[in-house]
Amino acid sequence: MPARLSTAFFILFVGAILTTGIFWLFLSDRHGFTAQDEPLIAEVLNREFRQGDIIFPAPDWDIGFTRYLRDGITDISYTLHAFTKEELSDLNNNGVNVLWFVVDSEERWNDLRDRLALREQGRFPAGRSLVIKAQPAGDAVAKLFDFTDDLAQAKEVYFADANGNRDNCSWDRDRWKCGNQEWQYVGPQRTLMAGRWQKANWAHPRTERTLHVVFENTVGATALVIGTSFLERAYREENGKPVRVAVTVDGKELLKYDNENIKKLYRHRIALPEGAQMIDLSFWVKFDGARHFVFNGYLGK
């Protein structure tokens, strides 16, 4: 081999030795929450956290501060990286609940704030780390009726076949029960929608039947936001069938799409016609094997 080439590789090798030595001795543990900061972070959260709030740690790979959290604080999301600012603003419950951002540096907070259009509402230093109370600052639709929080107020929930025969679901404690099988219900849960942890309604469709979830627009909403996705178990199933989603308002179909069997959050925002009354969200599938499907969204202005 030409001497120049072997010499070049030798120099690269020496460089790699130096890089390796310096990195692993001094730089490999330079981010994350320090051991001193962790109890301070937890102290803030233990004091300030209220039910319904969500905590977003960044980085999400260092969960050392959770060692000091009080019992009952369980709404911690390690999925902030997956959210767009629009999707994050959907979590905003008109400011009732708070989003907490636990960050290891000011620099990281600045990046997050800019990427997700966050408005800082409060700041609690915890050593070098920060606990920030913030809300999405985007042009979010004001939420008037939440499909998950207000699911109990759905006008009706039922499955219909092609001939129009109906199987009605009935409200049972915290969900619409639609059959004897464990999966046959429409009900709220917190779940991962294409890697984003949030509230959504379980709505497993049935073969060749259409699931209808009907809401009455009693709040005078002029806009609708809907999000749908398959859960992991479903989209990891090869050859799983797509779910056809439709939004019909007072008998007129305003939105129709196929939620493909992939890891994707389908999110649509549509304007409602003046005086819109009955809003029918429908879900149909050719074959229901492992179709773990969820939707969320809201009516707003």
Binding site: S28, D29, H31, G32, F33, W61, D62, I63, G64, T66, R67, Y68, L69, R70, D71, G72, I73, T74, D75, I76, Y78, T79, R190, T191, L192, W197, L231, E232
Partner: peptide, 26 residues
């Protein structure tokens, strides 16, 4: 990761009894 969320909810706590970490990464 969904298992972790289920676990938090089911156990009523996010507080681990022990973590295994390297360079602060669990």
């Amino acid at each position: 990761e969904s298992v972790l969320y289920d676990l938090y909810r089911e156990f009523g706590t996010a507080r681990p009894l022990e973590l295994s970490e390297t360079d602060s990464v669990y």
